[in-house]
Design a protein around this nucleic acid. Structure first.
Length: 227
DNA sequence: TCATTAATTGCCC
DNA sequence: GGGCAATTAATGA
């Protein structure tokens, strides 16, 4: 039996009564997904919507030429797979666990009624979609106008926002992240990312090792990006 | 220890 | 900047 405490503190559920929340969570099922396996794939019938409780998810699309593009990462407490909210009956992208993940899943058939009954739920879903739309727009502009250095810096700063964790050395991006991953996010190659990270490491902006990036000077990295 | 996967670097376009 | 290859490093079975 799932506990309402898992979600009761989230703004999505602000106007659910205790009973309504209990009823809602009774209809959820917990889904554990191992690192590097799919929650769902692009084009699949969207039978559930999800709330990520723990972990990080990569949203991935495959370009016509077969290259993988990381569209974004999803962090804990975000809704995902909300195809119904944008009037689709299939998922628009692949959702892959970047680490071992736990999420709650509800049947998509509950979506319309839930949105109707609970403004807090509807509003936070809209906000989530709105934020993602803004991110996409930012990235379109970046890809069209910015230098590679700026795009890579922007990708790292975005991840920092979502998955930053304070450590003694700096702020760690708390997701296993290869050079390839970073290049799949910023439209460049792993070689260029490797070279950039090496030079940034020399000038003290970041520290990186295998699947790990720590930002040691966020201000300088941000300035680099704003130039 | 071995096989696999990731990262770095140099050379060339 | 990207593509490629050679090499080295880290990791996990």
């Amino acid at each position: 039996m799932l506990d309402v405490a898992l979600i009761s503190h989230l703004p999505n559920f602000a106007d659910f009564s205790r009973v309504e929340l209990e009823d809602f969570i009774r209809q959820a099922s917990a889904r554990r997904v191992e690192k590097n396996t799919h929650f769902f794939s692009e084009g699949e019938t969207a039978s559930s919507f999800y709330l990520l409780l723990d972990g990080y998810i990569r949203v991935v699309r495959i370009s016509p030429s077969g290259e993988q593009i990381i569209v974004r990462y999803i962090a804990s407490h975000e809704l995902f797979g909300i195809a119904a909210a944008i009037g689709r009956d299939t998922y628009p992208a692949n959702a892959v666990a970047a680490v071992d993940c736990v999420a709650l899943a509800w049947p998509m058939s509950l979506w319309p009624d839930t949105v109707k009954r609970f403004p807090s739920f509807a509003n936070s879903a809209s906000a989530t979609l709105g934020n993602r739309l803004m991110d996409v727009q930012d990235r379109v502009i970046e890809l069209a106008t910015e230098q590679v250095e700026h795009r890579v810096a922007a990708a790292l700063l975005k991840l920092l926002e979502q998955a930053g964790k304070e450590t003694e050395e700096g702020i760690l991006i708390d997701i296993p992240l290869t050079r390839q991953d970073v290049s799949d996010m910023s439209g460049t190659t792993l070689h260029t990312v490797s070279r950039l990270l090496s030079s940034w490491e020399q000038s003290g902006l970041v520290k990186s090792s295998r699947k790990k990036v720590i930002i040691t000077d966020k201000v300088k990295l941000t300035n680099l990006y704003n130039r």
